[in-house]
Write a protein that binds this DNA or RNA. Structure first.
Lengths: 251, 251
DNA sequence: CCGATTTTGTTCTCACGTTCACAAGCTCCT
DNA sequence: AGGAGCTTGTGAACGTGAGAACAAAATCGG
């Protein structure tokens, strides 16, 4: 969204405060690092200090911060509180965002109790599930409500973010309902590729994919020499009992 | 295959089966899509079909697959079972990987029950926690064991992958212990940047970061015109009570 | 057997992201 | 006041990734 102004090999043609996606993904990390520094009573930090705390290269950090504006002092560094506020404002966590969680299985339960939500910036307004046996159950200070109430909840509480923690099966349908109800950002934990209309942002968190990526690298480390080099063309029979990766999230 | 021969601005000079990281991250998605197609009884699929199922562009998919070798038939497509096996082998999920989970709070509980682990490819061999009140508790068919037993478990079961679901505080120490014990791949759910020596792979899954990224885009959607355009330089006093994003994972 | 049709594998080009390196600018000390 | 010493902000080079486009190869129908 929003590129396009001049046409020239200058800077990536960033339009009016358009921050590169890669940078956006790191801002929360910087924010957390700044909070940690602040809690340690540190008032000023150099890009080097911050970069170390955030686990990135200092040049990258400086360039990232430069997209937000020129909030540092040459020869000195960055004022921790000030920069923290600026980043928080840029990300949008100076205001509260209403969140619903759909699918109260194991993972939904865990997220409902997750203190990271409780911190300011995000407010869980409802836990939803279609299973009548779960509806009414109390989790922390919240009660599981019927998924059928989705629309009224979204409207009443101006919910803009939905978290999907259902099994793979119903995930797309849940997603469609969320979008239809007016939710415009979705965080998906179900192991499926969800499709959403333009204008709706979606991010996925997928445990088994992460594990498989680790497995790939692990294999190259330990395997490299130890594994049979090439079963390139195994007989194509009897392969029906392969690992069925994927599976559902919830109970 | 066969990269690495001449020295010229040709392909990125990929050395001997070195698959680009971006491709590696997509292989598990393709694997899942293939499994779904297979379960639907589909024996052959074109790159277009596969790309749709995986939610990517077909040219990208073909290029990704070409790194693995030339497993398709022009004019026909890909044999689903065959390709599935090839990808599974490349990723390394045709063998089993032993996994330990450290930190049995809400999230650890959820992961212990997560069926995605139970599927073949990964085998949870131990649930560990340092809290004596948790040790001995049964979760599914496993029992929580004392974190002190880490070293012997890793050695006995040839554990190569560790999952950290502790709060932020102890995460680095747990990580160090895992590495010292011989674990070479780590999946971190704690909201901290962990540092590991070379040779150890680490991936992080961070809920609050994902939410903040969504919030950023959400703000640009709804805010753009509605928000006060620039409180660029607010008074620098009284900013100590800002949102404390971050926080811990476990209970 | 040959041409039409389909679909892969690959090349080329462009956009994006990372890193280096350095000038500009600030502070502190003499 | 002026120079030494830091540290930011950014220009430029490099590397990686994405997508369009097309030639090569396979099937199918006549």
């Amino acid at each position: 969204m929003t590129r396009a102004s001049s046409r020239r090999p200058g800077p990536p043609t960033r339009t009016e405060r358009g921050i590169p996606e890669a940078t956006v993904a790191r801002l929360p990390v910087y924010l957390r690092a700044l909070t940690a520094l602040s809690d340690s009573g540190i008032a000023t930090a150099s890009s080097e200090d911050l970069a170390t705390a955030a686990g990135v290269n200092s040049a990258k950090l400086r360039k990232d911060l430069s997209y937000l504006g020129s909030y540092g002092t040459r020869g000195v560094g960055y004022d921790v509180e000030y920069l923290r506020y600026q980043i928080a404002r840029e990300i949008g966590v100076t205001q509260d965002w209403a969140v619903v969680i759909v699918g109260i299985g194991n993972l939904g339960h865990a997220l409902a109790n997750y203190s990271g939500f409780g911190t300011r910036g995000f407010r869980i307004v409802a836990l939803l599930d279609a299973d009548p046996n779960l509806v009414g159950e109390r989790i922390g200070d919240m009660e599981v409500r019927d998924f059928a109430q989705l629309e009224e909840i979204v409207e009443a509480d101006r919910v803009s973010i939905g978290v999907i923690t259902t099994p793979a099966g119903p995930a797309q349908e849940v997603c469609d309902r969320l979008v239809a109800a007016g939710v415009t950002s979705i965080l998906n934990f179900a192991p499926v590729v969800l499709s959403v209309p333009d204008g709706v942002d979606i991010r996925k968190v997928d445990l088994s994919i992460e594990l498989q990526i680790l497995a790939y690298h692990e294999q190259r480390k330990s395997g490299e020499a130890a594994l049979p080099q090439v079963p390139e063309l195994p007989a194509m029979n009897g392969l029906t009992d392969l690992p069925s990766v994927g599976g559902g999230v919830g109970a």
